[in-house]
Design a protein around this nucleic acid. Structure first.
Length: 498
RNA sequence: GGGGGUGUAACUCAGCGGUAGAGUAUCUGCCUUUUAAGCAGAGAGUCGACGGUUCAAAUCCGUCCACCCUCACCA
């Protein structure tokens, strides 16, 4: 505490000194003429023309030596050496330069040149303070060894990185790059869907009933209406209302909130893409999933593969499509396709899978799938034909009363997407939601609730529809080779300090 | 929730029963082409918190807190 007070006091003193010599440490205007990258990309031109340019940025390094000093400033395009000579800027301006600290925002007006050591630099005519910092930035130094950047005293404390993401972005360039890629991926999703005629929509986050997924919600309260409201756990039910309303292709990229455990693939708020297409089914959704992810890979990375850890994931079409019971048979040798509850139950128990009292054969089949199959699905795989029991919003597969036209996309052992041929029969939908409601009464806190308003919408008539949801954060983890969701969310949930 | 790990200066870390350490950053002095600038000097710490053992605790023990890893739970 003493120490930080001391560092802080020094910075405040410098602030006062600047004011005393008539310098505004927080001027209202700046006057940049060039971004740093522009100068670097056209070095030779700026050196030979001796054009007077003005750059701005944060002071990231300082090497003073008496009547001359070197520093580095960075804007969002690059980093450049500055050279300040007392003789050139004059006595008064050199005093200003001497009062600068690492972390301050500065403006340098001058001309480009190359130093004796061969570094492209700007020779200052005028040094201007744009924003004085009052807290010291952690210091990271870099040295180039054999052409490779070696970094010293890196800012690596994971907790600090997440809690003070602004410092993380400032000091760790690869972190900034991750979020640039995130933005590009989302932009490419939008442009892909726009191209295909999907309209972007926004639906309520505050909902008086929640649905569309099996999850526990966050609850909040609206004072004027004096009612409890839920933060949405999925986008699904409102999107279907829009399909009822005659919009044939819609999508939304937005936050969902689930009041559940947190780990390296779960954050309580996370970003979901959902899209719905009238007159389509789950086969169309598989095609669109393949095309969209391949589109991202090509547009953002100019490749049709991605390296995740030691594994090369290929997005080349077609991706494997296999039914859940087929895959279970392949991996465990057990045939569950006849939905024989007693046999399945016994096989589960023999394999150490806990059987909940509300579970029927469908739920057990899903449990077998998770145990035997999921971790083995490394290359993109559409797992199709889920049990009806665990798919209350999906349409039954013709000729297979226990199955639905539903798939989940697995890559690298993780789920990335979920899609169905949507259930548009209002009578069937009511029965399924009521069955969920019974499970709920028996203690399943994640079962769906009956949403009368949604059912009423279905009763007005919904066309045959395909729907798809993709977890955006996980997709970005895949493309940026990150194993923790906290690395792809700017401000991940943390416990408050103290 | 179970198991494992980490927490010491602003940053990165060493110390692991006997006076709290290093590099960077900061401050002072010298330095007109440096680049992890250099040289000389200085200041800077409730050793995560609270208890206990001990003549003596950053160090050993216990409880708690935060974060990380892992298993379980969960999309």
């Amino acid at each position: 505490m003493e120490n930080i007070n001391q560092l802080l006091a020094v910075k405040r003193q410098k602030l006062e000194k600047l004011k005393n010599i008539g310098v505004d440490p927080y001027p209202t205007r700046s006057a940049r003429t060039h971004k740093i990258k522009v100068l670097i990309d056209n070095k030779d031109d700026y050196i030979s023309s001796e054009e007077v340019v003005t750059i701005t940025g944060r002071l990231k390094a300082m090497r003073r030596q008496g009547k001359v000093g070197f520093g580095n400033i960075a804007d969002d395009s690059g980093n450049m050496q500055i050279f300040v000579k007392k003789e050139k800027v004059g006595e008064e301006n050199y005093e200003v330069f001497k009062l600068l600290d690492l972390g301050d925002f500065v403006q340098i007006k001058g001309v480009c040149f190359v130093t004796q050591r061969g570094e492209f630099s700007i020779r200052a005519h005028v040094v201007t303070v744009l924003g004085k910092s009052l807290l010291p930035l952690p210091t990271v130094k870099e040295k180039i060894v054999d052409g490779k950047k070696q970094r010293f005293d890196e800012f690596t404390d994971i907790e600090l990185r997440y809690r003070k993401r602004y410092l993380d972005l400032l000091l760790n360039p690869e972190v900034k790059q991750t979020f640039e890629i995130r933005a590009q991926i989302i932009k490419e999703i939008r442009s892909f869907l726009d191209e295909k005629g999907f309209m972007e929509v926004e639906t309520p986050i505050l909902q008086s009933l929640y649905g569309g997924a099996n999850a526990r919600p966050f609850i909040t309260h609206h004072n004027t209406l004096n009612i409890d409201l839920y933060l949405r756990i999925a986008l699904e039910l409102y999107h279907k209302r829009l399909i009822v309303g005659g919009i044939e292709r819609i999508f939304e990229i937005g936050k969902n909130f689930r009041n559940e455990g947190m780990d390296r693939t779960h954050n309580p708020e996370f970003t979901m893409l959902e899209l719905y297409q009238a007159y389509a089914d789950y086969n169309d959704m598989m095609n669109i999933t393949e095309d969209m992810i391949l589109h991202i890979a090509k547009k953002v990375f100019n490749k049709d593969v991605v390296i995740f850890g030691d594994t090369e994931i290929s997005f080349k079409k077609p991706w494997k499509r296999a039914s859940m019971t087929e895959l279970i048979k392949e991996e465990s040798g057990f045939n569950a396709s006849n939905f024989d509850f007693e046999k399945i139950k016994k096989f589960c128990e023999d394999n150490g899978i806990e059987v909940e009292k509300t579970a029927g054969p469908g739920k057990l089949i899903e449990a077998l799938f998770e145990k035997f199959v999921e971790p083995k699905l490394i290359q993109p795989t559409f797992v199709i034909d889920f049990p009806k029991e665990v798919s209350p919003l999906a349409k039954v597969k013709p000729g297979h009363p226990n199955l639905t036209e539903r798939f989940e996309l697995f890559i690298n052992g993780n789920e990335y997407g979920n899609a169905f041929t949507e259930l548009n029969d209002p009578v069937d939908q009511r029965e399924r939601l009521e069955a969920q409601s019974k499970l709920r009464e028996m203690g399943d806190t994640e079962a769906n609730v009956v949403d009368e308003d949604f059912l009423e919408a279905l009763e007005y008539g919904m066309p045959p529809t395909g729907g798809l949801g993709i977890g955006i954060d996980r997709l970005i983890m895949l493309f940026t080779n990150n194993t923790s969701i906290k690395e792809v969310i700017l401000f991940p949930q943390m416990k408050p300090e103290e």
